[in-house]
Design a protein around this nucleic acid. Structure first.
Length: 573
DNA sequence: CCCAGCACGC
DNA sequence: GACGTACGTGCTGGGT
């Protein structure tokens, strides 16, 4: 056989820390083998090594359900899954991005077969067993079933991928990316725990001071962390707004934009906002990141999920390293704690305006294409054209409005939405949009065409054929329909940007190996890549990364990548 | 254990 | 008249 499915049973969910319990294989339908792995680490590695020829055979395709997991676990035991791979989870993600992709579901839908669910073996909740405590015949049956089902799903999905024209995207981008992501996760990111400890002390002190001030100003003590309590204080007791906005559950809304507008009415409002910001910073990042450092590697290992988002982007979890603060002065300080290894430099590169460039590229709008070709500041150039002034005479206000309009366009704008964003009247917003479409008529046509395509086919596509289904595009409910229409505009742009950076990641990883570099890619944040680079390799790495990012896909509108380096993420950005 | 509300990123 | 800008993850409070 030219391919085989493989599945590992382990002691947990995290591939970095979990230990192998067994490995199952299948090479034909309705047949599978299970190899139990001893708990003793040395014994285990010896046993796994016996399967090196099978697992590392370049000529055999390896089939797996979420095979990045098995790749990481096995690599920790000294063997590396090589050869082409076929991930059934990701295959289904390309076929039905917004459905579920777990094996139990896939087996029921595509094979009409109900699998043994893991909870039936190890239970769930607090009193969950380890897979190691499950009797051999039971775990063997379960593991073999998984390998068999995965094998059978591959037969179904390879045909579907072909039928849906998704083969290039699957075999050319998503599958090569699996190992790249696995390597990134294993590499991890180093954290300066001393810096975080100091930062925590400062933030906690500040928060305590603000807390006391809040009680003083409000005249009451209440739970500042409870939106319900905050709403009652602001609106029932202090009566800051007679017709306060309520959430759908009937509670007062105390969201940032609501509080922002109440700032002038009472000094407590700004203090509450500050308190919230600090609390978020502490609980989500400063105090929690150190607890997530892996004892063995001394680093943080996120997991990059390749089958979650509706558009093709990656997501990051446990912890999410794609939402580390950058906007506020105090928040961005956190990035000082993300550091390179000894003797290394933190290197960061990001695409400049990739989604707007793709709007220019895909719409062929002459004015927008020219603006990018001439290398102008795109927001200033947009403002100059809308307000019909020379680019030198564009004010900050004009540029800011044009910038918001540019962002709005990518998301599928409405006049009301733009008005709220810019705090201007509906009429002014409408005029701004009209000016925008006069400036970029091709963009307007492209947006209409995207919606038209969605109506005709029921889905939209990226440049690389990634689909997003939009059944709601014909809904009689205008709210539901408008939502689908915005997705019809946004998904091809956001999704194509995701495809392009994935290509860049694969090519960068290949170049690093080819050129025997010790540098490693460690993070992806949608349009940004971060690296841990031995300092003497910095010039080489910079050239490779910029070259591969800018040439990931040949376009008429140039793709530009900008970069920086330093002793931490903040300095590099 | 689950959901709502909120806040962080792109 | 309501709705009102895409895509995510994590924490806390508060209900069951």
């Amino acid at each position: 056989m030219l391919f085989r499915s493989i599945d590992t049973e382990t002691t947990g969910l995290d591939p970095i820390t979990s230990e192998l319990v067994g490995i199952s294989f299948s090479v034909r339908e309705n047949e599978a083998f299970y190899v139990p792995v001893p708990a003793d680490r040395d014994e285990a590695e010896k046993l796994v090594a016996l399967f090196r020829d099978v697992i590392e055979d370049e000529s055999k395709m390896k089939i797996g359900q979420n095979i990045k997991y098995d790749y990481i676990v096995l690599k920790n035991y000294g063997v590396e899954i090589r050869g082409d791979i076929f991930d059934t989870m990701i295959a289904h993600y390309l076929l039905q991005p917004e459905q579920r992709h777990n094996m139990d579901y896939l087996a029921e839908v595509y094979l009409k077969y109900r699998t043994i669910h893991i909870e039936e073996l190890i239970g769930s909740g607090k009193k969950q067993l380890s897979m190691r405590d499950v009797p051999l015949p039971v775990v063997s049956e379960y593991a073999c079933e998984d390998a068999d089902v995965t094998f059978q799903l591959k037969t179904v999905f390879e045909k579907e991928l072909k039928k849906e024209n998704l083969e290039k995207l699957f075999y050319g981008i998503e599958m090569p990316l699996v190992r790249v992501l696995g390597d990134m996760e294993m590499e991890g990111v180093k954290i300066d725990t001393n810096a975080l400890r100091d930062f925590s002390v400062i933030l906690t002190e500040q928060m305590r001071k603000i807390e006391l001030k809040i009680y003083e100003e409000a005249g009451y003590e209440f739970n500042i962390g409870s939106p319900k309590a905050v709403g009652e204080i602001l609106f029932d007791r202090l009566k800051l707004d007679e017709k306060a906005k309520k959430t759908k559950t009937g509670q007062y809304s105390t969201s940032e934009d609501v509080l922002e507008k109440l700032k002038d009415k009472h000094p407590v409002v700004e203090l509450i906002l500050e308190h919230r910001g600090l609390k978020k910073l502490l609980s989500t990042y400063v105090d929690s990141l150190p607890t997530l450092i892996d004892k063995r590697t001394g680093k943080i290992h996120t997991s990059f999920n390749q089958a979650v988002t509706a558009t093709g982007r990656l997501s990051s979890s446990n912890p999410n390293l794609q939402n580390i603060p950058i906007r506020t002065e105090i928040g961005k300080e956190l990035r000082r704690a993300f550091i390179p290894d000894e003797g290394c430099t933190f290197f960061s590169a990001d695409y400049s305006q990739i989604e707007l460039r793709l709007m220019a590229e895909m719409s062929h709008d002459k004015n927008m294409v020219d603006a990018f070709l001439s290398g102008e500041d795109i927001h200033a150039a947009t403002a100059a054209k809308i307000y019909k002034v020379p680019i030198e005479e564009v004010t900050r206000e004009m540029r800011n409005r044009a910038k918001t309009a540019n962002f709005g366009i990518i998301y599928g704008i409405s006049a009301f939405g733009l008005a709220t964003r810019l705090n201007i009247s509906g009429k002014e917003a409408k005029q701004l949009i009209e000016g925008y479409f006069e400036t970029y008529p091709g963009v307007k046509a492209y947006m209409e065409k995207s919606i038209e395509i969605a109506r005709e086919k029921g889905y939209v596509e990226t440049l690389f054929g990634r689909k997003r289904m939009l059944p709601d595009i014909t809904s009689r409910n205008s709210v539901v329909r408008s939502y689908a229409e915005r997705n019809a505009i946004n998904a091809p742009l956001q999704g194509t940007a995701a495809d392009i950076i994935k290509i860049a990641m694969i090519n960068i990883s290949r170049r690093f190996h080819q050129e025997n570099l010790k540098a490693s890619m460690i993070l992806q944040v949608h349009d940004e890549l971060n690296f841990n680079v031995p300092t003497h390799e910095l010039d080489t790495v910079r050239n490779i990364v910029i070259e591969e990012m800018e040439n990931a896909h040949k376009m008429n509108v140039p793709l530009i990548a900008e970069c920086g380096s330093g002793q931490n993420w903040l300095e590099a950005h």
